[in-house]
Design a protein around this nucleic acid. Structure first.
Lengths: 340, 340
DNA sequence: CTGTTAGCGCCTTCAT
DNA sequence: ATGAAGGCGCTAACAG
């Protein structure tokens, strides 16, 4: 019972004009010279027929697909899912769609990117990857489409949207210092990575500002997993006296792992140990005690990245690196003045 | 320095044959009559030029895009992100891509679906929605492409992949009963929804089997949010004696909300109250105490749904409803025998 | 077994 | 201000 999908030709016929005129009106980017009379006639016809352009035909002709590819290492990480959401919002506003692909781990690096780009499915790539810089960039360049990195920076990659890690870390550590903590440890991210390094630097800077010795402060790499956070916390507790009274975790996820270890060790939070983490997400209030966090603009990161990419595709923008400041500190139940 | 992308014509030229022959070989679904000599020659040429078919041109010609649209209400929900992951895996195996869209809440229902389907971007739709049945189905039918529902069933929709809610609920409640609990409450899902009803039914069935009275057991609708779970737990605690010794939550997320309320009320888990929830995800071990859950095959749900949809698109399958059994019970720290 | 032909639906010079 | 014509890259009859 459903009629055949109507094309440009049907609209043209109904409006009594040539298809090329219809195309001019409906594409309508330039203020084409078309009598406003026929223009309205065409617009009406298009609406009457509920005309929808065939994206394939248009893409074939213009060699642009109005589609962005997005490649993420994991979907269950709130940082990425939120960035995707942002990218999707921004893309939608600019009439772009999002084609999603996981990094097929185990495959040759970049397989996902290539497939998308080389079959003319996407006009550009949004990349949130954990790969080592060199291989990643080579593959990305090989695709021949513009790309924007999200949540990381890589030497030689011009376009990226990242968090101001240093400032975020200082916000977190500043909170601890303000509460009176003097022995503060850091559950770091990946020390080889962009974010891990920035957060560590911010941690040390904040300590120095407070008149504490950055070099003697314990730092345990924890990565961005629950297990990593747990292991790092364990090492921290095992590593002799005097124990810190507070820890700053580089990520919400690793902080939850640390919380588990503290529970198991019988150390009350925040009485025996204050915990503050970077990134805010629903999980922060699901754990016990609810975690004090620094809210980070992850959704905005996706939005900015998509906007930048579309700008690059359209040749309107020049790329660069956007550094987003952290939103604010969300004080919950996991931080308090030190007991001693 | 990157050479122009090579097309069918380049391959044909290099192999010294006509493009149509190349097409036959490279499409190669049917055992086309082509001399194995020229076939290998073409294959070599294609490899030498690193030929990649232009998906747009192919799609325009065949009116199939090898792309599935997936519409989800939220990305940060582990159930959905895991289902997406599964869909992506299955689609990839069958050479399909995934175009993602959020339900643009606030817009007219189905806007997301329509945009994807009516511009010939997708061959079919994977739908995980929370909308009321009627509107959803009307919109979906209007798109003219086949669709498969994930994690829900709707009257009149032939194709769906769902969880065996009743069995999952019985698994959870059976665990509680086995521990010796007699006063068991249910933090239900949405009682109007498919999943909520199934889980409630399973809850009551399990009680009846254990010789307990299903009708007198407290049931509080909690939805699938942290806040809903907290509010429901609060109502439960306020609703007079005798209090239950255990609760079965219809979802992991609402269970975390309930945990928070129990902490605040000074009720120890599991000593004062056992908690078991449906769905397993990393969050289950992030909360304190780590939640005992029933693991559900959410990723498989996505896989099955994608496989079914592709079967429908290819005209090879006939659809239907697949009911997936729960995986198993994961006993963590939130359940124990009742104290009294 | 292989080449020829004819579009898929659209955009875009080039005329008029 | 509008129409005519060509072709994006590919596949699918139909010839040979």
């Amino acid at each position: 019972m459903r009629r055949r999908k109507s094309g440009l030709r049907d609209v043209a016929q109904l409006a009594g004009v040539d298809v090329s005129t219809v195309s001019r009106v409906l594409t309508g980017n330039l203020q084409q010279r078309v009598s406003s009379e026929t223009r309205t006639r065409i617009l009406e016809a298009a609406k009457a027929l509920d005309y929808q352009p065939n994206a394939l035909a248009r893409g074939l002709r213009t060699s642009r697909t109005a589609t962005l590819g997005i490649v993420v290492p994991q979907l269950d990480n709130p940082v990425f899912s939120s960035a995707i959401r942002g990218a999707e919002l921004a893309a939608g506003r600019l009439a772009y769609s999002l084609l999603i692909a996981h990094r097929d781990s185990g495959q040759r690096i970049g397989g996902a990117y290539r497939r998308l780009a080389e079959t003319h499915r996407v006009d550009g790539l949004l990349v949130a990857s954990l790969d080592s810089d060199r291989d990643l960039l080579v593959e990305l360049r090989g695709t021949g489409v513009p790309f924007v990195l999200m949540n990381r920076q890589a030497a030689g990659a011009a376009n990226a949207v990242v968090l101001d890690n240093e400032r975020a870390a200082r916000m977190a550590v500043g909170h601890l210092v303000g509460l009176g903590h003097r022995r503060i440890a850091h559950l770091a991210g990946r020390l080889e990575g962009y974010n891990g390094q920035g957060r560590l630097a911010g941690f040390r800077a904040a300590l120095a500002e407070a008149g504490l010795d950055p070099q003697s402060a314990p730092v345990e790499p924890a990565g961005y997993s629950v297990e990593g956070g747990a292991a790092a916390m364990q090492r921290l507790l095992a590593s002799g006296e005097p124990q810190p009274t507070a820890v700053f975790a580089a990520s919400l996820i690793s902080a939850t792992g640390a919380l588990g270890v503290l529970h198991a060790a019988g150390i009350a939070v925040p009485r025996g140990m204050s915990v503050v983490a970077l990134h805010d997400a629903p999980v922060a209030s699901m754990v016990y005690p609810a975690l004090t966090t620094v809210r980070t603009p992850t959704q905005e990161m996706g939005e900015k990245a998509a906007e930048m990419l579309i700008g690059l595709i359209r040749g309107e923008a020049s790329g660069g690196t956007i550094v987003l400041p952290p939103d604010d500190l969300v004080v919950r139940a996991s931080t308090a003045p030190p007991a001693d």
